[in-house]
Design a protein around this nucleic acid. Structure first.
Length: 353
DNA sequence: GACTCGTGGGG
DNA sequence: TCCCCAAGAGT
């Protein structure tokens, strides 16, 4: 059976596709790989400035493998999903050590690297080596769900299996690199989430959702759940020289490996902060002052951040590897979570209650 | 299979 | 203001 999907798409791509993104130039496997990791769950416009700075600081896989992890994380600060940055360096070290500095041209070996799953491995093969492999990102899911009128939420395994099946079926033998870019561009530029521009679509005539005037039904929406509310204390501990205490967060969990303000158990009352702080951090502290808090929304919960300010001096020695006293501008040069950066930057957020 | 992991854009 | 979701992967 002849499938007109790919030829029509490629013709459209030649004239209307995106041919000028930063990772399209000097297209090495390393540059494609970094872009693919950054683009996971992150929009192109957000990625571009981070990508430019990252490639300038880490121009090849060796510089990334050898860099201090703090340096990698600080270049990722503000992008989110920080496990991507930790996995990126881990994979770079594996490529240097186990693959002689060259990215493998094999899907299975690529997927063995940290942070590279099925779709990302396929994207690297297609984009950098022009090797046939099917991708399935958010754009492709939306295009295929509409084109084939696939009901159900793509998070369900059965739906995902159908999508992968069609993704592989449509993938042509030639011009893999262009086809991979083309189907993503179609999703990003024409087959958009809301108000798709079907009049400009190259595969409109064979699209089931369009034929039935049902583009809004696909892909199916995910079941909604109410997000729980969590609360935490964030401490601005300032010494007599005006420096602030920062602590490195554990390698896993929220904001893993980043620097942030010290946290205390939200169950503690305001009057218990001083004692808890002295015990847990080995400081001598003044009276706590509440600062106006704010709410930060995550994918799965809301976090109410209540900041408190205290004057503090180290009693014996707190200068371990995971704590640093820094002035405000020095602190901002570290890898900080976005809400903490806001807290330290925005004077409005440091109003006394 | 269900959770976890971030941040910003758009409706 | 609130919700969904974006070039997904790991546990």
């Amino acid at each position: 059976m002849t499938d007109s999907f790919a030829p029509a798409l490629l013709n459209w791509f030649d004239e209307h596709g995106r041919h000028n993104l930063p990772w399209h130039h000097n297209r090495t496997a390393y540059r494609v790989w970094v872009s693919e990791i950054m683009l996971q769950q992150t929009q192109v416009a957000t990625v571009i400035p981070y990508y430019q700075a990252f490639m300038h600081r880490f121009p090849d896989v060796h510089s990334l493998a050898l860099a201090p992890t703090d340096d990698v994380l600080s270049h990722w600060s503000g992008l989110g999903y920080y496990a991507r940055a930790r996995n990126l360096q881990k994979a770079a070290q594996a490529v240097v050590k186990e693959h002689n500095g060259e990215f493998p041209r094999d899907q299975q070996q690529l997927e063995a690297l940290s942070g590279i799953g099925r779709s990302t491995a396929a994207a690297i093969l297609a984009q950098s080596y022009d090797i046939k492999a099917a991708i399935l990102d958010g754009n492709v899911k939306r295009v295929l769900a509409r084109y084939h009128a696939i009901t159900g939420w793509p998070g369900q395994t059965a739906v995902l299996q159908k999508l992968w099946q069609f993704a592989e079926q449509h993938t042509p033998n030639d011009r893999i690199r262009d086809y991979t870019q083309a189907i993503m561009d179609l999703g990003a530029l024409v087959c958009t989430r809301s108000r798709p521009s079907c009049e400009r679509c190259p595969v409109q005539q064979t699209c089931l959702a369009y034929a039935n005037n049902e583009t809004t039904l696909y892909p199916g929406s995910k079941p909604k759940k109410t997000k729980p509310e969590k609360t935490t204390w964030m401490l601005i501990l300032e010494d007599s020289e005006g420096r602030i205490l920062l602590q490195r967060r554990p390698p896993s969990g929220i904001w893993g490996g980043l620097w942030s303000l010290p946290e205390l158990d939200p169950a503690l009352g305001e009057d218990e902060l001083q004692q808890a702080c002295e015990q847990q951090l080995g400081l001598s502290c003044g009276d706590p002052q509440r600062i106006s808090g704010f709410r930060h929304t995550f994918s799965h919960y809301h976090l109410h951040i209540q900041p408190a300010r205290m004057s503090a001096e180290p009693k014996n020695r707190v200068a371990d590897d995971n704590h640093r006293w820094l002035h405000r501008d020095q602190a901002l040069s570290l890898g900080l979570p976005a809400p903490i950066r806001t807290l330290l930057t925005d004077p409005e957020q440091t109003t006394l209650l």
